[in-house]
Structure formats: structure tokens, C-alpha cells
């Protein structure tokens, strides 16, 4: 059983939902990233999505794009991101780390080299935003062979045939994009998301996470009623953006505690 699967099983046994914060590696500064990861875990993260900085993050809104830009000022590329995961793993062997990013940095490293390096670093899953399942069959197979999960997005516009295609290629969990738009866009229509998640659930036993529009604890609470995992990205990154070096860890802890409380309620 993969680390991601174990976490979901344990949560299910306790009737709890997964809280998955997203941060961009190297934001606000590469020296902080590993400490932020530990802070997230200490304050209730069940898994972490770690963004690979990219110069052209087309599916992200301005908030996460700025995070990439801040990280790229310090030349945080994929190999540095993997080093950070390795360092995190020295003291945390339990919390799954999912890398989220775009195809080009992975292709620049070479898919095989990346798979090996990610496995060695202790990565559990990979979500490549601009790799639809049709374009990455070999990549999924090699991730799977190395014991890593391939996470895919499902969107409000994905039709039935596509949902079938994607649930058959995915492992770990499915990531439902709660709105039409980029990360951190407008408010989500919770009822609509709920109906869609139910539809997807009828086709798969994989856990279903919801993200792209979870702006606050109140939304997180509503989504936790029907989803297996709540992904909080832009809200987390805004908090990092608005913090000083002094209050960074404090602000992150506070947001995490609010979210944890809301989804456990």
C-alpha cells in the first residue's frame, strides 16, 4: 500500500477527511521550504502538495504565478525541489508529498531520470498539470513501476467518457477542480461540486479531493461533508506572500489550525 493510500485508509477509519495544503517550493525563499513543510504537518496537514516552480504556469492564477516568480529569483528548479523533499524525509517518513507542476521541467530533466530521483527523494505522487492521460502513458507506467501515484485533475467540463478514461489511469486520489478557471479563481458553487463529486464517485473507489476554489475555513467545512480531501492552494500562498520572515510560521500555523478545525467539525 502506498503512503497516500495508507493515509486515506487511516483517515477513513477515523471518519476524518484529508487536509492537503499546497505551497510552491522555494517560496518565499528556498531556505524556508523544509521548515514550512514541517510546520504544515505539525498543524494538521495529512499530505502536502509541493509546487515545482515554472516560468509559464498557464493553469494557475496570479497568486501562484507570483509564488513561482519568487522561487525562480532564487533559481529553484526541479532538482532543488527534490533535494528539499529529501531533506524533509530525513525527519518525516510518514507524510505523503505530491509534486505538482508542469511537463517541461520534468522533460528537461528527462522522465526516467526524474522518476528515479523522485523515488529516491521520497516523493509519493506526481500531478503534471499539462499532461492529459493520452499524452503521458509511458510516464504514468514508469511512475507506477517506481511505486508512485499519478494524480489527475477532473474538471467541471470533463464529460462522462473522459471521467472514465481518467479514473482508469489515476491512482492515489482524484483531484476535482471545483470551478471553471485557474487556481484561486472565484467562489465555488458548493452544491454543484457536490453533485459532480457524487457522479465521479459512482465510477471509482479512489478517494476524491476538491480544490482550486477553497478560499476559507467555511468553504473547507462545506466541502469536507462530501469530499475525501480538501486542497488549499492560493489561500495558503497568499498567507505566505503577506507574511514577514518573523510571522511566517505563525501565520501558516494559524491558517492550518482554522482549516483543520473546520473540516474536522
Amino acid at each position: 500500500m502506498s503512503r497516500i493510500q495508507s493515509v486515506f485508509s487511516a483517515l477513513k477509519a477515523n471518519h476524518k477527511k484529508a487536509l492537503i495544503p499546497y505551497i510552491t517550493a522555494g517560496d518565499p525563499h528556498p531556505n524556508h521550504t523544509v521548515a514550512i513543510l514541517h510546520t504544515l504537518v505539525k498543524n494538521g496537514a495529512d499530505m502536502i502538495e509541493l509546487g515545482i516552480p515554472f516560468s509559464d504556469p498557464m493553469a494557475d492564477g496570479p497568486v501562484i504565478q507570483r509564488a513561482s516568480e519568487r522561487a525562480l529569483v532564487h533559481k529553484v528548479g526541479l532538482s532543488k525541489v527534490l533535494q528539499m523533499v529529501k531533506e524533509f524525509r530525513q525527519t518525516d517518513t510518514q507524510t505523503p508529498i505530491i509534486l505538482m507542476g508542469y511537463a517541461n521541467p520534468i522533460e528537461a530533466m528527462g522522465a526516467d531520470k526524474f522518476t528515479q530521483a523522485a523515488k529516491d527523494a521520497g516523493v509519493d505522487g506526481v500531478l503534471t498539470v499539462d499532461y492529459p492521460p493520452e499524452e503521458c502513458k509511458e510516464f504514468i507506467a514508469s511512475l507506477r513501476a517506481a511505486g508512485m501515484d499519478s494524480i489527475f485533475l477532473l474538471s467541471p467540463t470533463s464529460d462522462v467518457a473522459r471521467v472514465d478514461l481518467i479514473v482508469n489511469q489515476a491512482s492515489g486520489f482524484l483531484y476535482y477542480v471545483s470551478l471553471k478557471g485557474v487556481t484561486g479563481a472565484a467562489n465555488m458553487d458548493v452544491a454543484q461540486v457536490k453533485a459532480r463529486v457524487a457522479e465521479i464517485r459512482s465510477k471509482t473507489n479512489l478517494p476524491i479531493g476538491v480544490g482550486f476554489g477553497v478560499k476559507d475555513a467555511a468553504t473547507a467545512k462545506l466541502v469536507a461533508e462530501f469530499a475525501d480531501a480538501i486542497v488549499v492552494g492560493s489561500r495558503m500562498v497568499v498567507t505566505i506572500e503577506n507574511s514577514t520572515e518573523e510571522n511566517l510560521m505563525h501565520n501558516i500555523s494559524q491558517l492550518m489550525q482554522e482549516l483543520r478545525l473546520a473540516i474536522d467539525a
Binding site: 498539470v129 499539462d130 485533475l153 467540463t157 477542480v177
Partner: peptide, 12 residues
């Protein structure tokens, strides 16, 4: 070539 986009654009 190909189609390398996020899932949100696939249907469009």
C-alpha cells in the same frame, strides 16, 4: 504538437 493542456481545457 499534441494536446498538452490542463484538464479544464480539454473539452473546449
Amino acid at each position: 504538437g499534441g494536446i498538452f493542456v490542463a484538464e479544464t481545457l480539454v473539452e473546449a
